[in-house]
Amino acid sequence: MTHDDKHDDHYHPPGLQHQFDDMGQQMDSVTIGMWTFLAQEIMFFGGLFTAYLVFRSRFPMAFAAGSNHLDAFWGWLNTLVLIVSSLTMALAVFYAQKGNRNLQVVMIILTMIFGTVFLGVKAIEYTDKYNHGLVPVDGWNKVVPEGEDHGKEAARLSLPFETTVSAAESADGSDKPHPNPRGEFQITDADLDLVTMAQKEGFLTESEKIGYFSNGELDPEKVKGKVQIFFWIYFVMTGLHALHMVVGLGIMLWLLVMAWRNTFSADYYSPVEISGLYWHFVDIVWIFLFPLLYLLGRHFLAGGH
């Protein structure tokens, strides 16, 4: 861009962009800008949280059943992983302010490692859902042919860990998966039991009394539809969250290069600061996703009412 520099012939610190007068103004602008962006992000995820709220308030049992198919341990582990990464991120900002290049680089790398671990765990979980017929789109699950004697191995992608608590295992408690010749979304008898239990105890909501039954009889298809909605929401929410993690990792990579080149100092560290804000925000989203998706309704497993 060709500009006549008449107006800014004063001292020009490195990192100061032409439209600003001084570093203070630039720092203020980027900070306000990032927070405005985060307000936008709140509303972006907010639409999903509203959908969750509406469906969960109407079908708590189906959502409890869905939660129980998730592995709370993995969710819990991932929460810890993200919290640690938030700590290292905060420390990266701290060392950038101090102008300590080495520790800054170390902290950014650590943050990236934990971010990657998070995504790895997510991948394990997703694969597991795929193996157990819990992807809410018919035909998008692993095909398990009928009538074969499928051992555990045959039916799964080989995973280092066995994760899902109660997904579509056979009703007899053996470890064999349900046959799923068309890769459909499936639920288990345990899910239906949960509904029956709630019905007996008398705490089905008005919507549930209509939404699970046909002609007064428990209708597995209808229950399945509601659990399917849970999983649809689960995949969209965690998927979008994971996407934000991927973007965050990209930002970290860029920061790493900048930090490596020793760009940041006590006077100029706003890129680290605002990237940190983004990273912490993504962490906060997970802080809510974890209880909402993994934990609520889990006490029913504990023998509940």
């Binding site: 919290i83 905060a90 420390l91 209880p291 934990l295 889990r298 006490h299 029913f300 504990a302």
Partner: peptide, 26 residues
């Protein structure tokens, strides 16, 4: 301070997990 905040987050995460398995509703 940062470590303190982290400790809080860490413990809260453990508590939330443990508590979720109890039947507080009942």
């Amino acid at each position: 301070g940062y470590l303190g905040v982290f400790a809080f987050l860490f413990i809260a995460t453990i508590i939330t997990y443990v508590v979720a398995l109890q039947d507080l509703d009942g």
